[in-house]
Amino acid sequence: MKYEGWPDEGELVVGKVDDIEDFGVFVDLEQYQDKRGLVHVSEVASGWIKNVRDHVNEDQTVVAKVLGVDESAQQIDLSLKDVNDHQHSDTIQEWKNEQKADKWLTLAFGEDMADDQFRRIANGLLADFGSLYDGFEQAAIHGHEALADTALEDDEIDAIVETARDNVSVPYVTVTGYVSLQSPDGDGVDTIKDALQAAEGNGEVPDEVDLDVTYVGAPEYRLRVQAPNYKTAESALEAAGDRAVDSVTAHDGSGAFHRERQLDDDA
């Protein structure tokens, strides 16, 4: 989807080199409808430039910084030299993500969806998430809940969530902690198992959190949490540890949660 408006000053944009002149480079903006910018020779690269073609090629995809916009003159001034490698790769990735999200919208609603419906849904996602891709990513992680506050219809939300879950690979973080659990009772192994089941949450852990409880070497058990971000992961990990300790102490056992292993493997 291409934006109909104008880019903002300071914005990083993706473009394709269209025409190379001695005084500079003309770039077609990929994210904006019928918009073209100029990179003056002094903004192509740092230092003295003998030949512009030593630095750019026609049809090359570039990332440029918007230096200024004159809507009345239909003119956009761009800079290539003000974009560092990190900004370049991030912007390209975001652009590729938006292209993916464009395809997902088409997948969700079909090739023959009306332009105004496409625009309405896209603008709805942009308004709430800043980009189509982030909208799909949140839908993949949190499901219907993520789109509840948007202006989308229920059936549209269903279609987006289903498509997101099929296509978006969610970036997860993994955190690990340990619980030391001991029970003096004759059926102590059952007390420990109950505590570990409690750690796993008995079905009360949110959908976006994946919690795994395994044995490492009595009395230590590993809690491994996968979640979309560290804050969620850390919070789920501590809650799991607390549930295990509360469960075992309620049955006259003892327990403690800790971040690192307390015992060696052969202890």
Binding site: I192, K193, L196, E200, D212, T214, Y215, D265
Partner: peptide
């Protein structure tokens, strides 16, 4: 090591 809690 690695045994899930249910198999303890």
């Amino acid at each position: 090591p690695g045994t899930e809690w249910g198999g303890l």
